[in-house]
Design a binder for these strands. Structure first.
Length: 207
DNA sequence: AACATGATCAACT
DNA sequence: GTTGATCATGTTT
């Protein structure tokens, strides 16, 4: 599929998401997140993502076991899980692995490819590079809300396309903004990209 | 009380 | 340009 003269590949198949969250987070870098809206399609290349594991990961929303809030995380991989944080922001996750596991990948930053005019309405006055920088900002640009919980990628208005092969361009670090299980290196990102969140000194920025 | 954040502002290099 | 402090805000435990 082609969007604004950019080839973003085909939609990934359903079984793509049936892998552990750590592997899925790495695999999602370079993929294109897209959404069909009444005003047209929005699309952006995933540049930064974090894995939240089942079992030992105390910072994962699934750690306490199944609750009303985290129920989407226990669906089969490819399910959407959106939560609200600090009363103000929303964050988007894509569930990993088989049903009942409870692992997901937080999408933290992306490079806008299409629907920039639509994103700009939702993020007035922002530079293109800042439209989808940070999980709360990305959710705002894409208008993700709890309404999107339990939707399935590629069987709804939310899509993931093959995008770009970024193997060999991906760096790993500790996750941002958590206080538990901080030793785990589960943040994956394109080093030096101007689209990633966090302080430049943590990111190997070139800019 | 804690929370997977972001905008703003003041102070610095 | 960068950094750290502060706070707005609603849901969950």
């Amino acid at each position: 599929m082609r969007l604004n003269e950019i080839e973003i590949g085909a939609a990934v198949d359903r079984c793509f998401f049936l892998m552990p969250a750590e592997k899925l987070a790495r695999s999602l870098i370079g993929k294109v997140l897209a959404r069909q809206t009444p005003f047209g399609i929005i699309a952006a290349e995933i540049i930064e993502a974090e894995a939240y594991l089942d079992g030992i990961d105390e910072s994962s929303h699934s750690f306490p076991g199944l609750t009303a809030r985290n129920a989407p995380m226990f669906e089969e991989g490819g399910c959407i899980y959106v939560y609200q944080i600090y009363g103000v922001h929303h964050c988007v996750n894509i569930v990993a692995d088989a049903a009942g596991i409870g692992a997901a990948v937080l999408i933290r930053a992306a490079r806008p490819i299409a629907g920039i005019d639509i994103m700009s309405v939702r993020r007035p006055g922002k530079e293109i590079r800042d439209l989808c920088k940070g999980p709360g900002n990305l959710a705002k640009a894409f208008s993700f809300t709890k309404e999107d919980n339990f939707k399935r990628v590629n069987s709804s208005d939310i899509l993931i396309h093959e995008g770009f092969d970024r193997r060999g361009m991906i760096s790993v670090s500790e996750r941002i903004g958590i206080t538990k299980s901080t030793d785990l290196k589960l943040r994956f990102f394109m080093a030096g990209s101007k689209y990633i969140s966090g302080r430049p000194s943590l990111n190997g920025h070139i800019q």
